[in-house]
């Protein structure tokens, strides 16, 4: 009951936030000096041509009027038409979304595995040189953002020891049998592991760049709460029962220590997704973020709006999911 109430409240605030995002993007990008329509027409275009196209995209109306028309369209699933690519925004955006999702989820999985392993190892070997080393590595990883890690990775694994691809999502010459844009997932489902390998070798470095800061945060926070949990009475009691230290950490401490980390990972995951914008650019990875930068540079107003709204939906959605998971994992909340 209380859970349902929280959920409803969260849905309302989420809607308000999304509306705010829509208003801000919509008005901000319309302050742009220069007519995007004039930019897309060939140099010889007449004023009549420009006016005609401007009217076609509805850009001749007042800004509040435009917002109303756009808003009504969005509620019907119509995000308008991209000015530069001349296709429906929704189709374009949903076409790129899988690439970004695959990249972010891959990075998240890496971060959780590496960060989790670091935290568990650090706890198992607490107060040794190993823990000190883990702390220093975490500190370094945290101090430098994904953009710089991406550049370092390009230098090291793209140029110095060229073992991974540093550009694109897939080798362009390959024949792709895919019907969805979830290439990685589909290549596995179709058992085309040659393609999986190619996709992974493109995805690996950008994913690592995105994962490094998050892995460090997970490592640090989880280790800290694990170490605090290790002093609690029920852990001490479990230790008298004959279990190995590793099992005590895994079975007794971890389930309780993981909750604060989980909330943080949720927020941090949205930061990671935000990071895909520049990382995709850096690795010429054909995802949403890369498309967003192109849209901004080309003043493609409907496309910019669509992408920003989609990002905002993802961000708020992730936060919502995290809150619900938190409630589901915590027996005290679950049983009210």
């Amino acid at each position: 009951m209380a859970l349902l109430q929280t959920l409803l409240l969260r849905l309302v605030t989420t809607a308000v936030t999304l509306f705010g995002v829509a208003v801000i993007v919509f008005f901000v990008i319309r302050v742009v000096p220069g007519n995007p329509i004039a930019m897309m027409l060939p140099p010889g275009a007449t004023q009549a041509d420009i006016d005609q196209l401007t009217a076609l995209y509805g850009l001749d109306k007042s800004i509040p009027q435009q917002f109303l028309i756009w808003g009504l369209g969005v509620l019907h699933g119509d995000f308008g038409t991209s000015i530069t690519l001349r296709q429906p925004v929704l189709a374009l955006v949903l076409g790129r979304l899988p690439a970004t999702l695959e990249l972010s989820v891959m990075a998240l999985v890496m971060a959780v595995l590496v960060g989790g392993a670091a935290a568990l190892t650090g706890t198992r070997l607490r107060a040794t040189k190993v823990e000190g080393g883990i702390d220093i590595a975490n500190g370094m990883a945290l101090s430098v953002p994904d953009f710089l890690w991406g550049l370092v990775l390009i230098l090291v694994f793209g140029v110095l020891v060229p073992v991974f691809q540093i550009s694109g999502r897939v080798t362009p010459s390959l024949q792709l049998p895919f019907v969805t844009n979830f290439y990685l997932v589909e290549s596995i489902v179709r058992l085309r592991f040659d393609l999986t390998k190619d996709l992974l070798s493109h995805m690996f470095l950008p994913a690592v760049a995105l994962a490094i800061p998050l892995a460090a945060i997970i490592g640090q926070l989880l280790k800290q709460s694990l170490k605090e949990t290790m002093h609690l009475d029920y852990v001490t009691l479990a230790r008298t029962q004959g279990y190995s230290e590793a099992r005590v950490i895994w079975r007794e401490a971890l389930p309780n220590a993981i909750l604060p980390t989980l909330t943080l990972v949720g927020v941090q995951f949205t930061f990671l997704i935000g990071g895909t914008v520049i990382i995709e650019r850096l690795f010429s990875y054909e995802g949403l973020g890369n498309m967003a930068i192109d849209a901004v540079i080309n003043r493609d107003l409907p496309l910019i709006q669509g992408i920003v709204i989609l990002f905002a939906v993802i961000f708020t959605g992730v936060n919502l999911v995290v809150d619900l998971t938190y409630a589901a994992l915590n027996p005290r909340l679950r049983h009210g």
Partner: peptide, 16 residues
């Protein structure tokens, strides 16, 4: 609302 924007995209947008 700010937390729902990808900051890099937001800054690129503003500069544009």
């Amino acid at each position: 609302i700010w937390m729902a924007f990808p900051p890099v995209l937001f800054s690129i947008l503003l500069i544009a």
